[in-house]
Amino acid sequence: MSEQTITVTLATEKKPKPDPSKLEFGKVFTDHMFMMDYTVENGWHNAQILPYQPITLDPASVIFHYGQAVFEGMKAYLTAEDKVLLFRPEKNMERLNKSNDRLCIPEIDEEFALDALKQLINVDREWIPTGEGTSLYIRPFVISTQPFLGVAASISYKFMILLSPVGSYYKEGVKPVKIFVENEYVRAVAGGTGSAKTAGNYASSLKAQQIATQKGYSQVLWLDGVEKKYIEEVGAMNVFFKIGDEVVTPVLNGSILEGVTRRSVLDLLKHWNVPVVERKISVEEIFEASKNGELKEAFGTGTAAVISPIGEFLWNETSITLNNGETGELAKKIYDTLTNIQNGREEDPFGWTVEV
C-alpha cells in the first residue's frame, strides 16, 4: 500500500481564517481533508486530499448501529523558525493500529498514513496558528461503512484525517482543576475496549462527566470497573501522583489507554532521575497520603492540555486539596519542557519531534 499515490484536489474557494486569539477547540476546520477507502476486494485504496466537505453514508452503515470506529488525536506546531513539527506521530499511528485490531478494522500502513498526514498539513500549512500556545489539532479516524444490520465487523471502511486550528488550552495560564471521584459509573474494564481509542468509550463517559460538571467539578477520576477501588484515568487523560519523592502512575492493565504524553512523561522523569513507578494505586491510598502530608502533586497528561494539574479531589463527600490548590513544581517543569520541545524552543534529546 505504501506505493500508492495520493490524488490532490485543491479547494477553489478558501475559508476565512479565524482570529487566533478566539480559537476554541474543535470548532473550525481547514480547507482540506484526507480520505481513503477500504474494501475486501481492493484493500485500502483511493487515497486523496480533497476540499473539506460532508460525506454520504447509507443509513444502515455499521458505524451508526454498532459503533465500529477508532480515532487518534495529535498536533502540529509552528516554530519561531517557521518549521512545522509533529510530536511522536509514529506512536499515534501505532496506537491507531492497536485500536483497529481491537475493533476488527483492517490495519493501516502506518508509514503511508504519516506521509499522507504530512502532505495534508503542507496543503493547509497557512492554517497553523501562530499565537502563544496555539497549534493545529489533527484528528485521524476510521469508520465502518458497510450497510448491514447484522452484528459483525464491516467489510468496508473510510480512513480520514481532519485538521483544526486550536487555541491555547490554558488561556489564562496553567491552573489546577477540581476532580470528582466517580463511584457509580465506570469507564472501561480489562478485556473491554478501554485500551483502544474507540468512539464508544467516550460516549459512555458522558453521563459521569455531566454529573461532575453539575457538582462544580472539571473532570471525573475513573476507578476500576471490578472493585471500584483502583485509579485508572482522569477524564480522558492518564494520571500521575507525586507521593513523597516518588511519582506514581496506574500500570497499564488492559482497560487504561496508553497515552503518548504518558509515555513521554515517564521517559522525561527517568531522564531527570526522578523515581517513577507504574503500579496499581487505590483512591484510598491517595487520600491517606494526603492525610499524612505525603501527597505533593497530581496531574493529568494528554494531547490537548499536555499537563493538567489537579488542585482538589472529592470522594464520598470528602475533599482534599493538593499543594494549596496551586500548580506543583514538577507539573510545571514537565509542562514547560514538553511544550518547549513540541514548539522547537528547547533541544529535543529524545528525537521526539518530526519535521513536516
Rank of each mutant, 00 (worst) to 15 (best):
P54F: 12
E107G: 05
S135P: 05
T301C: 14
T193A: 12
M1C: 08
D37N: 15
I105D: 10
R187P: 03
K17V: 06
F34G: 03
I231D: 01
V265I: 15
A236F: 05
E285N: 05
D115W: 14
F141R: 02
I179Y: 01
M237K: 05
D58Q: 13
A80P: 00
N253K: 09
Y77D: 08
A152C: 11
L114W: 04
G150I: 06
A152H: 07
K27T: 13
N100D: 05
I286T: 12
N238S: 04
L322K: 04
Q214R: 12
V306S: 09
L136W: 10
V8N: 02
L206V: 13
N46K: 14
V239R: 05
D31F: 02
G173K: 11
V189G: 07
E329G: 00
S61E: 04
E3A: 13
K22F: 04
K17F: 12
P147C: 07
P16M: 06
V220T: 08
E297A: 00
D124Q: 05
N42F: 05
F112Y: 07
T249M: 10
Q68A: 08
Q342R: 11
I138W: 03
V247I: 10
K178R: 15
V166S: 01
L57S: 08
K118Q: 12
L57W: 09
A47I: 02
S2L: 14
G344Q: 10
G43E: 05
Y137H: 04
Y185H: 13
S21C: 07
V28N: 03
W127H: 00
T339G: 07
V177P: 04
L103I: 00
R139S: 07
P59E: 06
L163R: 10
V251T: 04
V247S: 11
V142W: 03
T7F: 02
I341E: 11
V354W: 14
N253G: 09
V306I: 13
E278M: 02
V84K: 14
T79S: 08
P59K: 05
N340L: 13
L295G: 06
Y217E: 00
T213E: 15
L96C: 01
S290C: 13
T301Q: 11
D267E: 15
E126G: 04
V283M: 09
L163Y: 12
Q342N: 10
L149N: 11
P275N: 13
D224E: 10
V265K: 13
H65M: 08
I6H: 00
N316L: 10
L85A: 08
I341V: 15
F350G: 03
G200I: 03
P106H: 09
I55R: 12
G300C: 05
S144R: 05
Y66D: 09
S218I: 02
L330V: 02
T5D: 02
E285M: 07
F241C: 04
E13R: 14
V177I: 15
D348Q: 06
E232A: 01
E258N: 10
A208T: 05
G325I: 06
G225E: 02
V166M: 03
K228M: 11
N273L: 06
P140Q: 06
T193H: 06
E346V: 08
N183C: 03
T321E: 15
Q146Y: 11
L50A: 10
G43R: 01
P250I: 08
V239Y: 07
I128V: 13
M35G: 15
D115E: 15
E227S: 04
E24F: 12
A196E: 03
L96T: 02
D267T: 14
A113S: 05
V356F: 05
N46G: 14
Y217L: 01
